[in-house]
Nucleic acid binder design. Structure first.
Lengths: 254, 254
DNA sequence: CGTTCCGTTGAGTGCCGTCAATCCGGGTGG
DNA sequence: CCACCCGGATTGACGGCACTCAACGGAACG
């Protein structure tokens, strides 16, 4: 009986990780790419919900790849309010943007219990040097993250509360579907209305009213930690949602 | 008499460009870095104010480095409104983020007459391969751009009109100072109140009222295309402005 | 000298925030 | 098993920040 190649086995395991899954939507990853990737996954760590794992002003922080759970990045304002910039779901980087700065410019809070792989900046750059294809894929992921931030900005600037909320939930649905969590019908959502409010620039009270309106209009139901798209087409139209920047029919690079 | 080395001369010319000036705030660029940089500047082009030089959905667009003038990147919404994501000033990239996407996800409009160098994506990647230091500098510039977008997002979500406007003008002032245009006292600003409104998620009418309030409170004056910081400390306090992500005391990498 | 763009100001409106009370489910301790 | 507590969800009343509509002045331009 032939014992399977250990590295090969490793690659086979990694291929179903949310991170590889997301990258695979952009580039076709070879076995060697996957092997390099699996090396990055070594230092797995677990964080409890609620306690920040990175905060503004912190110097020389590491980068994480989120393996399980939800997190959010946010900024605090003097008034005591905060603005959530983005939510991170499995497959997303934590703190990639500020890796080139001396200090992190935002906080990251685990919303649920979180499992993440700690990646040394040096190892990441090393991996890039070995597999340019992987480097391209990561750059694409970073561009995609920024595109989401931009879309978020547009929503805050020019969409009313209902459109903004609908757009946000559609985007989360599309992102989750891409990494194999959730479907076109909906997804499990651990976000409280307070978190939603801090992300969408609204008050929790108003979020509640908006969700009720969406529910009564037969568009979507968000109750008991479940988001259900009752009328997907109607939502897409209402929110002017275009998933082009998130999804692709297939890899762009082969 | 010795004729100076042509390449050397080229490097001497480029060192005063806004782009090099901005990068130099982050890394110390060697003569060879500057030579590579000057190669990127070859294809200089001019665009008149007002006509978009890139639009949403456009495929395989080039990247530009802005040499002179102001531009803005924006997204259109179905209602006919638009949201300006960011303004670009000399030294900034145009369209860098969407270079890895098949299609641009936003429009770019020259606000004034604009001079820009067209850079082929291939040449850029080639330059990166030759001088990793330059690659790092460009990545830093990209991270800085994203940090500005994030700060913009925070403003739209959680700052009122006055704070938001003050913060925006302070940020523009800091950016312009970094590339050698404008000073601590103020700067020449070609933006109309309509452009300001589209950027800050407000109506032009309200921008007008906000500017009046800032003026009457002795904080800043924006008239006849000139922004003057009448009370810089007061503005910084009002807007909770922190230029850490824009400016540095000196290069971080030597 | 009309046109157009930009800036300015007033009046009225509405979306969304704040304050406050209530309800509900789950966890905890008696 | 029940009382208590606590975070989150829900709803109502009220107020304010910023929008819309509208009108007018001034400067640039053909």
């Amino acid at each position: 009986m032939v014992r399977p190649d250990a590295k090969r086995l490793c690659a086979m395991t990694i291929v179903n990780s949310p991170f590889a899954r997301k990258l695979a939507a952009f580039v076709t990853l070879s076995d060697s790419d996957l092997t390099v990737l699996s090396d990055l996954y070594r230092r797995r760590r677990v964080f409890p919900a609620g306690r920040d794992l990175m905060h503004q002003g912190q110097t020389s922080h590491p980068v994480y790849i989120l393996a399980d759970g939800w997190a959010c990045s946010y900024k605090l304002l003097p008034g005591g309010t905060r603005q959530i910039v983005d939510f991170q779901i499995p497959g997303d980087f934590l703190g990639l943007r500020s890796v080139l700065f001396r200090t992190a410019d935002h906080n990251i809070e685990p919303i649920t219990r979180v499992e993440a792989s700690e990646v040394m900046a040096h190892d990441l750059l090393d991996a890039f040097a070995r597999t340019p294809r992987l480097a391209t894929a990561v750059l694409w992921a970073a561009s995609r993250d920024e595109a989401m931030v931009v879309e978020h900005l547009v929503g805050l600037g020019r969409r009313n509360a209902v459109e903004r909320t609908a757009h946000f939930l559609l985007e989360m649905g599309a992102r989750l579907k891409l990494v194999g969590i959730g479907s076109k019908a909906g997804f499990a959502c651990p976000l409280s209305q307070y978190l939603l409010a801090d992300a969408l620039g609204l008050s929790a009270v108003h979020i509640n009213r908006v969700l009720r309106e969406l529910r009564e209009d037969g568009l979507l139901t968000f109750q008991h930690g479940q988001v259900v798209f009752d009328d997907l087409a109607g939502l897409v139209k209402l929110a002017d949602f275009d998933a082009a920047y998130l999804d692709h029919d297939g890899p762009l690079l082969r």
